[in-house]
Nucleic acid binder design. Structure first.
Lengths: 348, 348
DNA sequence: TGATATTAAGTTAACGTTAACATCACACTA
DNA sequence: TAGTGTGATGTTAACGTTAACTTAATATCA
């Protein structure tokens, strides 16, 4: 498309017969400029629809006042809440936020990192799941002393802060709650047994069973076997629904299910109700995340609340600390507590 | 924080005793470079952890291969789906996507536009709701011949393409469907009567009633009176729940409700079930958007599907057309059809 | 064998801005 | 009246890259 060249500082300067520097001073409200000159410049700026070229400005200034946030699948409340909290923390301090999406693939993770680095953002917050190539690139970025903070990602580096919810404890508590209610056959929906290496919620579930000498029955752990390229990365209603169907067809069905997240729990609940069973009498259900939805299921969903906003706030705070501090700062690795919210899907 | 200066082209060049241009050629795989030199450069690049400075490169090249997307509240499937579709369309063509969030306030809208323009993005897709100041700024940006496409935003400009779902027809069809089923007292949840000026779904509802000579009862239209600064902008389960409660307490309650979106519908369904009423026998429910959730409510939700992905795809396509085309292009203003999906929340 | 390509570099001058310094006029002070 | 301050500008040289041009060596061909 024919794009007439946008006006530059020099264009304005030439038009009214002053030095570009004078225009720069007006535009940035720095240094001395007489009222008369200022006004003439202003008029020209408006007339020519001038906007400073950010690239040139940032190149010269060596900072962009912009932060990048890399999210996986954005269609889940976790990403969303974090993004909002990060944004609030940053805009309050005058920083812009650019969000990049990488649908949980290493390649896209890297592409996102690179495009942010290429735009010279002042720092990066990463909230995608860990993967080998991505971690390597991230380490290289951190090596270059670009401030990086990871959220909910298993990544460690000399000067990368990390924040995560205590998913293990959350999974443990959820399962413990069901055990306390007398359940022995407790299912897990949302991942396969093979994911136990990386999925903390599943680990918590397994640990709780073990602690109470309840044997682990692999048939009770159901859900897509997760790979990094799964899209969406977030476990869905569909997975919950189908997983529950499978569980219901077992010779001896579970009396309780712990779903990996609320969406999955909702899908499971649908399957349970369709089978004509009652919640929690026949089968108790626990979710995870305490999304707004959890209040509006029938019955309302018992779930584990993770402090999503807090994670975002902290991420913004720690990143700004790194960006602003002249002195090197110590690494912070925070694990935040989760809270079991008991509702009627487990106790009538 | 102590940030040791990142290596530049010249640093590499100095280190191995060649001209910066030669390094540039290696890095960009352009022009002629001997194998020996190439290899030496490559080694130095790795050794010094060199990455080209995107600001400088883009400043020189006068393009960034980056597109900005401005979303309102990202915590709703509409934003999410559009973002994903846009992203797909762009990455396929080698463009990066930066997403900015503006919680539906004019101020933040403008801040987002500005920060994108400042980073010299090659084009902008705007999917936030219309507001006066924002529209003005957007017009100024379009005046500068920066490619702009709006999605679901009521904005018209000589060279800004626009895309939207036919929300009016969707609202009409949903209401028509309920009328066809014999309903006379049909409520609308999710906005107030005062929003009829801007809310197409509500207009469709009103038009359908009028066409069938059903008098409009303002008490049956309930929901937050919307202002631009509402956060989140998306109508929620809570609003649906509370709205339905109000409707149920009316002397003569409705026999059907059309909810502004699926979330609102889910909230309404909870309220209906809590009141011991049956869906659809006592009260029929229609939602809007056909989110994944709609399949997993009980009963499954009748809803209006709007082509979210398509909107995103088209937006990417039209924007790329503007970015790529050397010739001026005609304005495209597309209104996409919606589709009524009938499920058991209206017909048993 | 000279003419013409091809390969492999180097040089120069921007892209648009601003930090740092320089200049000059004028007012004020001792 | 010289000395100092300060207000209002201008000048220069980067920031890191690359397009466009130049140079020089080597290869190819009639």
């Amino acid at each position: 498309m024919v794009r007439k060249k946008p006006a530059t500082l020099s264009d304005i300067a030439a038009k009214i017969g002053v030095a570009p520097m004078t225009v720069s001073r007006v535009v940035n409200s720095t240094g001395y400029v007489s009222d008369r000159t200022r006004e003439r410049v202003m008029r020209a700026v408006t007339e020519m629809n001038y906007r400073p070229n950010g690239l040139a400005r940032n190149l010269k200034r060596q900072r962009t006042e912009t932060v990048g946030l890399v999210l996986g699948d954005i269609s889940n409340p976790y990403s969303t809440e974090i993004a909002n909290a990060v944004r609030e923390g940053l805009t309050a301090r005058g920083f812009n936020l650019f969000i990049c999406i990488s649908e949980h693939s290493a390649k896209e993770d890297i592409a996102a990192f690179d495009s942010l680095v290429d735009h010279n953002v002042d720092g990066i917050i990463v909230a995608t799941r860990s993967n080998k190539e991505g971690d390597e690139r991230l380490a290289r970025i951190a090596d270059r002393n670009i401030p990086v903070v990871v959220v909910g990602r298993d990544f460690h580096h000399d000067h990368v802060d990390s924040i995560a919810a205590d998913n293990f404890a959350g999974g443990f508590d959820a399962t413990q709650h069901l055990i306390d209610l007398g359940h022995k056959r407790i299912a897990f929906i949302g991942a396969s047994f093979d994911n136990r290496g990386s999925l903390k919620r599943l680990q918590g579930y397994l640990a709780a069973l073990t602690e109470h000498d309840i044997p682990v029955d692999e048939r009770l752990i159901t859900g897509r076997k997760e790979t990094i390229s799964d899209v969406p990365g977030y476990s869905t209603e569909k997975i919950g629904y189908e997983g529950m169907k499978r569980l219901l067809s077992l010779p001896k069905r579970p009396t309780a299910v712990f779903a990996r997240n609320d969406f999955t729990a909702v899908g499971a609940m649908t399957a349970i109700k369709e089978a004509g069973l009652s919640i929690p009498k026949d089968i108790a259900v626990v979710g995870f995340d305490d999304t707004p939805l959890a209040l509006h299921t029938l019955p309302p969903l018992t779930t584990v609340r993770q402090p999503m906003r807090l994670q975002g706030q902290l991420a913004a705070e720690l990143l700004l600390r790194r960006i602003t501090n002249v002195e090197p700062v110590d690494v912070e690795e925070r694990i935040l507590e989760c809270e079991l919210i008991v509702r009627q899907s487990t106790v009538a």
